[in-house]
Design a protein around this nucleic acid. Structure first.
Lengths: 240, 240
DNA sequence: AAAATATAGTTGTCTATACCAATTATGCTG
DNA sequence: CAGCATAATTGGTATAGACAACTATATTTT
């Protein structure tokens, strides 16, 4: 519980991160009343306004709530926060109470088509393409085509396709996952999709396209998935 | 462009609302550089910190962006903003640069089926049911079935179906729209859907179900829409 | 015992000032 | 004219203090 006034990091930021730590560790659980702003200011020997600057941002992120005359409290966990997180197929199925698995159909480096190159903001034209059949409780659920920015992940092998690829990318290539754009549309199963998914050609499929960005805003993957229309619903909660 | 120092409303709030007005009216378009904080402070004869308090909140709402050494600017409209707010069909189409209209097919009070009654947490079993064909640039885009909690909106007439029904509910019945749960799935057009939407029976449609809640958490409407798969993509941005 | 009052502690608002860091405009110099 | 140093302007950080609005508790009065 210390701050360093000589650090190049702003004082308010140090206090903010300290509080964030208490929240994440659970040391300050939901409902907990924080030390008052004056106490904080005295403790760190800073001005009260500096403390307020630290707290204000956390309040606007809805991690804390202020109550006039009472104090500042740790906010209750909200359902919405769940939906902020980006879901991988594995996590999605787990949340639905099903066991996820994959069958790798294809892994190769290839030249990106124009649309993919544009979405990934490629200079060089190479991408890793990975086609995986996604299973839930050992039954086909979706056919997934991933395109990975080849320059960003040199030497990526097909063994990456098993297990969580995001963990691999974060650990071995030092990227941090940021945001994602998704689009959903209805379509009909092609011959190939139908065969792999075990449905009739022309049966409905939900087409989900996702472009995922690093925390720096660089796009690093584009995924197009065809989900069985009879087995999959995409759910979303829109807060406020 | 005035503020009232004797108003019970805080000064920073008055400034904030003034800026919000300029943004909404379009007087300050995206990219516009705001007067500097010092100019503002002088103009209103308040401290610069007070101006900063007004601006800070708008920045955290992503309506403005600050750039050190350059100035404060009106943010570009981001796709994300569309998806944060709850979108009505009208707003959705407007955001896509199309003109929205409707053809009312049906408006009646009826007994809710079990699923609808559960979703709307009905005690009495009555709902208003409203079927509308939704057009974008005068071409069929979706067929929409709305179920409204009848007890909450006594005396609602079919004239409500034209124009923005949300405005009507907010103004006449004093509700505030809160959150919504949505689910999306792929399906095939039924005979009736196909005819109204102008597509072949069995063509792909995107089925969107939405339950909308008031700010108090009371569900007040359930909507099931069938969107033409060839014309509509649902887009969503997942932050962080 | 109940009601009114005081008191202390909390966040909310606002001031006036100071210096720092990044960017842009200006004017000088070669 | 190009390049460079300087100044001016902008937002970023931080201080110290003041009063207001609100809440909870303790004290006094009725």
């Amino acid at each position: 519980m210390k701050i360093n006034k000589k650090s190049p990091l702003p004082i308010y930021y140090q206090i903010q991160e300290m509080i964030r730590g208490k929240l994440e560790s659970g040391e300050w659980p939901p409902g907990y009343m924080l030390p008052s702003e004056r106490i904080f200011a005295e403790e760190f020997d800073v001005s009260r306004m500096t403390v307020r600057q630290a707290v204000t941002e956390l309040v606007s992120e809805q991690l804390l709530t202020r109550e006039k005359g009472k104090g500042t409290f740790v906010a209750e966990h909200k359902i919405e926060q769940m939906l902020q997180g980006l879901t991988s197929f594995t996590e999605d199925m787990k949340a639905r109470g099903m066991k996820a698995s994959s069958e790798l159909q294809l892994f190769q480096m290839e030249e990106a088509d124009a649309a993919t190159a544009r979405l990934l903001q490629l200079k060089g034209g190479s991408v890793y393409r990975m086609e995986r059949l996604r299973l839930a409780d050992n039954k086909p659920m979706a056919l997934e085509n991933s395109y990975l920015h080849a320059e960003m992940f040199p030497g990526l092998g097909k063994e990456a396709a098993s297990g969580s690829i995001y963990n691999r990318l974060e650990q071995d290539y030092g990227i941090t996952i940021g945001s994602a754009d998704q689009s959903l549309e209805a379509s009909l199963a092609s011959e190939r999709e139908a065969e792999l998914l075990g449905i009739a050609p022309g049966a409905p499929v939900l087409l989900i396209s996702r472009t995922t960005y690093t925390a720096d805003g660089e796009p690093f993957e584009h995924v197009i998935s065809s989900y069985r229309g009879d087995r999959y619903k995409f759910r979303i909660h829109m807060p406020r």
